[in-house]
Design a protein around this nucleic acid. Sequence first.
RNA 1: GGCCCGUUGGUCAAGGGGUUAAGACACCGCCCUUUCACGGCGGAGACAGGAGUUCGAUUCUCCUACGGGUCACCA
Length: 555
Amino acid sequence: MDAIDHKALAELLFPDVKMTPEDLEAKYPPRDLPEGAAVTRLAPSPTGFIHFGNLFPAITSERLAHQSGGVFYLRIEDTDAKREVPGAVEIIINSLAYFGVRFDEGAVMDGDRGNYGPYRQRQRREIYHVIAKKLVADGLAYPCFCTEEQLDDIRARQEKEKANFGYYGEWAVCRELSLDEVKKKLDAGMPYVLRFRSNGSIENKIKHIDLIKGELMLTENDIDHVLLKSDGIPTYHFAHVVDDHFMRTTHVIRGDEWLSTLPFHLQLFDALNWKRPKYLHNAPLMKSEGGSKRKISKRKDREAALSYYMEAGYPAEAVFEYALNTLNSNFEQWRMANPDSPATEFKFSVKKMSPSGALLDIDKLRDISKNVIAKMDARTVYDLLTEWAKAYDPEFHDIITKDPEYTINILGIGRGGKKPRKDAAVWGDFRDLISFFYDPLFKPEYEYPDNLNKDDIIAILSEYQGIYDPADDNQVWFGRVRELAEKHGCCPDMKKYKEDPSGYKGHVGDVSMVLRVAVCGRTQTPDLCEIMRIMGAEMVHRRIAQAIENLKAAD
RNA sequence: GGCCCGUUGGUCAAGGGGUUAAGACACCGCCCUUUCACGGCGGAGACAGGAGUUCGAUUCUCCUACGGGUCACCA
């Protein structure tokens, strides 16, 4: 068998490529970073949809880089034009920025930033071709002219023979094409892809250490995978190896769906004599359904989209902390010990990452979110709430921004101190929580304690109209309620009532409840005295009058 | 089907030959309390199954089951 002239083939295929791999090495030198600094990246394809699951590798990458004084960059994998959606890059950048993931380098809003670009793969065509040419010249890649039909046929035969699928060994019919044959096909204008010439065998096992999964026993790759598609654009595999080499990535963090092609990637790094990056493969985020787990699906699950969390109004910080907690479960211990430190001070550890897929736990997210919101001051809550409402609940936004001071006072109820209220998990909860403070949103449901009859209630309310004084502090305020209770046959002392309820219609709590229901139109509220103070005497009196009227009209 | 990965309470998980097998969320009960929320105290609840190695396996090995991934000119 005559050895084909690989150099001649390389020239034939890539006559315009003049640069050499050495030129590229010089253009993209190793980064000047301190020892141990990690260079990581996020490499999404611009489909316009960001999966919630993407947040996990994104945060892992971001933490690893920024915690070590390294670099975190964004690379756009736009090698598949069919799936690309206009404006997708902006959506990616904006959504991730919202959740606290920021890039130092890469594809940013207006073009690119950094010395290792371009950061959009379609603009890197020449770079891939330089390496592709070298691979051909070294006899490690060859053109394949097989049509789709031919490939289908190969597969059908493999299925019949129960052989492994793929383009390899004897099935790789274009592998040994002579220079003349290639020339002929080229002259005939036949399209071709460039394939890697694998020298691997599935008989061989390779050991590889993944930073998350640990020691892996993988099967060597024997498939002649496609490096360049017929349009000259690289496949993911080739782009990954070339880009992460020249962008000097140290840690590749990606989903574990890539595990099966990892042997090929390693093989490519070795074939090019490049240093392999470290790999971290993480399991996908799961969802529980009917007692079993399954991967969260973009089609079936609303919560799969990152935008879902923005719409529901989870504070970005809460989502960030939730993700951090799922990634490193010791985060919550750290959070308890450091309640006021920013989450970025937490020492993120790769060793703590679980090799198996976590289930999305909305309860946990809500709990974290409640704590995050509870720690904010009223002004911050106001700013974030109104910002959210502006986008997702404009009617509510207009109502609460009419009198900012009033709203901030409302949002300040039960806030601060050692045991702050935790009744809101998302911005969307606030509408219901505070609606009764605003006349346009006030939809009272008058449910009074049933141990008091209608006349008692009317009497209590009418009398309260005369004694309410907005100047009263909490003690005085409650003192008046007690007096009122006693006057209407209710025990002013809860303890005493519990010991012996006989001789009373009810207790002071019932009277408070009557006032609460009349003023707020509901049975569950924060501290009533504070509510009244914030509402102001006019509104309190008006609400009580309205309640009395409603009672009288009920007959 | 081939190959690969995974499996500790309902959920997230610590632990990695000898432990009463942490903690958090959720759940339940009690307490605090003018309702709710908060907070405090307590409760129930787990090493997928089977072999093997060992004096001893949740921990190491193998098999089975289950779950997941992948086998494209998609990433």
